[in-house]
Amino acid sequence: MTRDGAAGPGDAPLLTVRSLAVDFGSTRVVDGVSFHVSRGEIVALVGESGSGKTVTALSLLDLVPMPGRRTAGDVVFEGRDVTGLSPSELRRLRGGGIGFVFQEPGEALDPVRTIGSELVAVLRRHRGLSRDEARREALSWLSRVALPDPEARMRDLPHRMSGGMRQRAMIALALAGGPRLLVADEPTTALDVTIQAQLLELLRRLRGELGLAVLLVTHDLDVVAEVADRALVMYAAEIVEEGPVADLLASPAHPYTRALLAARPTAGSGAENRSLTGLEGSAAVPGAWLSGCRFAPRCPVAVERCGRERPGLSPVARGRAACHLVGRSGT
């Protein structure tokens, strides 16, 4: 498979996001978000709903829905700033450079178009194949994502398939254009756990086969633990902690990450007897943020300084965290 555009500087990350800000009217929903994704890496973007993770993902393709607007920052993919692209370059990037898998496959597939016709359209658009070549390639993609009986699936409308099959079809669609980065927005949330495990396994396999980088947007820490190499934790439009998944789950630095981990139901640890440790208060409402740390009102260890002064990301172990208390107390 040709990987055009892969001629970027050898060690530069595939994707670099710098100080990204997105506003919906006067409300800021993504605020100074910076991160990178390297080739072949699976990075998880973790957060509650409303934390800005989906908008962050959409802005990689310049697809933030109206009336949202990117107001600051750069998104650099393979050495080129996404905002500087012409409409036709942008269309090549969408599906050709970055593939996107949506949360609810039942709603993200056009109800009146067959999987085959959608795949053929993507293959012709991004890979310049003839109709016949595209058909053959479409069939091979359907078998690649392990859909049973690809010939029959080609002619199927989405409603004739199960949720798991649809999500496999979505993944085939997202990858058929030959992207180097796959952005998956809650790809397994709408599916039951056994299907979820199969899909995560599929993602891991495809990463190996294609050298694919994956940005996995999720609120599910079990999914993160399962597949991701590195994780970014978002709270109230900001990244509050990032680091290798193993470190992050074993010794979270930020009180919010700790709270998320504590709120996770764990099988076989006497979860029935122990009530789940919920997080006090509710997620910060965009636009109603304090001048200090946005997590301070819910933080069990907040000190007076937290209400005054916003913490920046500072190094901790092999990652970074935005908390005044890390590095001081050593937690």
């Binding site: 269309r91 090549r92 599906g95 050709g96 593939g99 709603e107 993200a108 056009d110 658009r125 997202a174």
Partner: peptide
């Protein structure tokens, strides 16, 4: 505004 039209855009249509 429906997901499948958004998905079509995200696929470069």
């Amino acid at each position: 505004a429906s997901p499948y039209v958004e998905a079509a855009r995200a696929a470069g249509a």
